[in-house]
Write a protein that binds this DNA or RNA. Structure first.
Lengths: 382, 382
DNA sequence: CGCCATTTAGCAAACGTTTGCCAAAAACCA
DNA sequence: TGGTTTTTGGCAAACGTTTGCTAAATGGCG
């Protein structure tokens, strides 16, 4: 407007005008969509009335409200989320932080988790943004920018530690955070977890009852929460049965879960090298179990006659391996829903400060890969 | 609201006071974080200088810039994304629309796709939001609200049609959109696809060269783009070899891909019922192939001696089935990257209007599930 | 030292909503 | 009908940035 007026004012001095323009970016006149003001004009009311009619219907006459929403529909009006978010100081976006090695355990559970969470969130009017937490600094920065920049309203952190960058830490946010799969209730983060330890203990107990006394444990990344818990559960069962830690051989542990299949292959090689063969194998993920099984079968061992096998995750594919694989199924759907419920509770009632812990139990699905130990056959030659 | 007010009215005069308050919400004094104004004050410059120093470093003295970014770091300042977005009229969020039956083909490819896309986006400073496109109306509304409400800056639509709701359609947005997996370049949407048709044709040709003349085709959802393409490819190969459509039996087609395993199981039953047995099976997803294989093996058939098998998707698990499964691998990583590249190109240079089509070829991974047809053994009894 | 060209910094107006406050209208009661 | 309560609508000020314009500062040159 001002520049046009200037142009008219001094028609001869075009240069001047040009110079002025150098500093000027186009104001992006392209937002196109109808504004609340357009709706108000069409409905013959004030903007504020439109706002109230759309967001807080109780506060406006029904007849007016109808007129307004008709106008809105006619124009195809959609309120601008950023303007709203800026004004009310909150967004309706939830961020889920996924570990860099995305394929934790069986990759199959990630889509289920994401879908379950997204559905639950949608029902409450929230949207889902995903963030990858790699080991590099930039990914942590991105996440913290999202958190501190007001883009997100709450965080679900999936089997990871809270990211930190410089003097900013996710823990310092006022944002509600829920930890999924990783128990961080000690650090006063509400957590939704499954009973890794107990589930593995129970599976080990069953193997012991079937007569097994020598175990191969195929480990996840050393130090990983899930690996520690699961191995701990196996050891507990052994101890209860009066068996020492000598009765279990560990394999794997060097790789991230992303390489589950490779870990299983290497475990099969380890197995082949052992003088004293275990009769039962506990794998910390289905991927490992499947590739392990494939390799040892190829080497000539029979499952479950020579070797029983049980793993963790509950991927659907386990039902269709040969033989069908016993696995500890994680109730991903329920866990996702529980996490969302917890998060929304924190969002909507800011006064909740107690750190809850919700344990959704995993359950062992018994299939043909588990059988009684071969009596008196504790030593096999490779 | 109205009824509550009536209740108060009857109660007495306290109502007045309460009613006044009813209209008042706390102004949410809790944004907490440091503002650009705080940084400016600490650095001893004006707000606008801070803004320019942070976003457009060339426009401000280096010494000043250093002072400002030191101040920003000291305060842990993070710019508010919604305020920025509102002002500049654009966000930095990309939305990916996933089909409601999320487990298209092998669910394994979804996490890979998502991770690949998210990584590429991160590098360009964008964030990824996921949206589920279910069959219900609310999910379409949610998606359109995101698109029209200015929340997102671009859209990647994964193997789905554009959602429509009332008089709003994603097609009407000014937003850049890229279609992934589904070829919509005819509808002037830039698309990144793989060569479904040609890949299946080639695999079928190889089977024919191995002496196979009777096929079982395990179909995806009837009418689905991928199913049409893949079946078409198989038919083309048959026709080229002078074989009529009679030489292929279709199974499945009724379910969504989500039930891939079940489709395979039912295909095995169909197979058992056939008088004239096919000698080769083409499955449209790895899930189907795996469950099919498991069942027919259990019924006593041998793979690949009695029956050759090839499927689509390239899930890692195929390498470890018994026997290892031949599969057509989709280059998901490259496809994701290509989609992002295309999208960012459209975002940053708004003048591109030509609809591109990028074909990233799939490749057949040959494993033991494919072998020569048993000579002269076209009919087996069940 | 003075004049002009070029940087650099600051003011204030946007961006599109929501909402406190107040005025107007409506409804009710006597 | 007049006064009082209740409801409804409108004005304008936020929310935290970016940015056009202008003022000030800096530097170059005669």
């Amino acid at each position: 407007m001002a520049s046009i007026a200037l142009g008219f004012e001094a028609a001869g001095i075009q240069t001047k005008d040009r110079n002025v323009k150098k500093n000027k970016d186009v104001p992006a006149e392209e937002h196109s969509g109808p504004l609340m003001a357009d709706v108000a004009r069409l409905a013959g009311v004030a903007i504020s009335t439109v706002s109230r009619a759309l967001a807080n219907p109780g506060r406006v006459n029904e007849k007016t409200r109808a007129k307004i929403s008709a106008a809105a529909k006619q124009l195809g009006y959609t309120p601008n989320a950023m303007a709203r978010g800026l004004r009310v100081g909150k967004s309706n976006i939830i961020m889920i932080i996924l570990p860099g090695s995305l394929h934790y355990g069986a990759s199959q559970i990630i889509p289920q988790i994401l879908q379950g969470i997204n559905r639950s969130l949608s029902q409450h009017g929230y949207h889902l943004m995903i963030a990858n937490l790699d080991r590099d600094e930039t990914s942590e920065q991105h996440i913290l920018d999202l958190a501190f920049g007001g883009t997100v309203r709450g965080v679900i952190i999936f089997s990871s530690q809270l990211p930190v960058d410089g003097n900013r830490s996710l823990a310092d946010t006022a944002l509600p955070i829920v930890s999924l799969l990783l128990d961080m209730s000690e650090s006063s983060l509400p957590s939704v977890v499954t009973n890794d330890r107990q589930a593995v203990r129970q599976a080990t107990q069953e193997l012991i009852e079937l007569g097994h006394t020598r175990f191969l444990y195929i480990a996840g990344p050393t130090g990983n929460y899930h690996d520690v818990e699961r191995y701990g559960g196996a050891l507990e069962a052994l101890r209860e049965a009066g068996l020492s830690e000598q009765h279990v051989v560990r394999s794997g542990g060097a790789h991230s879960y992303q390489l589950g299949f490779r870990t299983g292959v290497e475990a099969a090689d380890d197995f082949a090298r052992l003088e004293v063969k275990p009769t039962a194998v506990i794998a910390t993920s289905d991927d490992m179990a499947i590739s392990f099984m494939s390799r040892v079968q190829r080497m000539g061992w029979n499952i479950p006659t020579d070797l029983s096998l049980v793993s963790f995750d509950g991927s659907p594919v386990c039902e269709f391996s040969t033989p069908p694989l016993s696995t500890i199924e994680q109730p991903v759907e329920e866990m996702g829903q529980a996490a969302v419920a917890l998060l929304i509770e924190r969002i909507e009632q800011a006064h909740i400060r107690t750190a809850t812990r919700i344990v959704v139990p995993s359950r062992l699905i018994r299939r043909e890969s588990m059988a009684a130990a071969k009596p008196g056959l504790n030593i096999l030659r490779s």
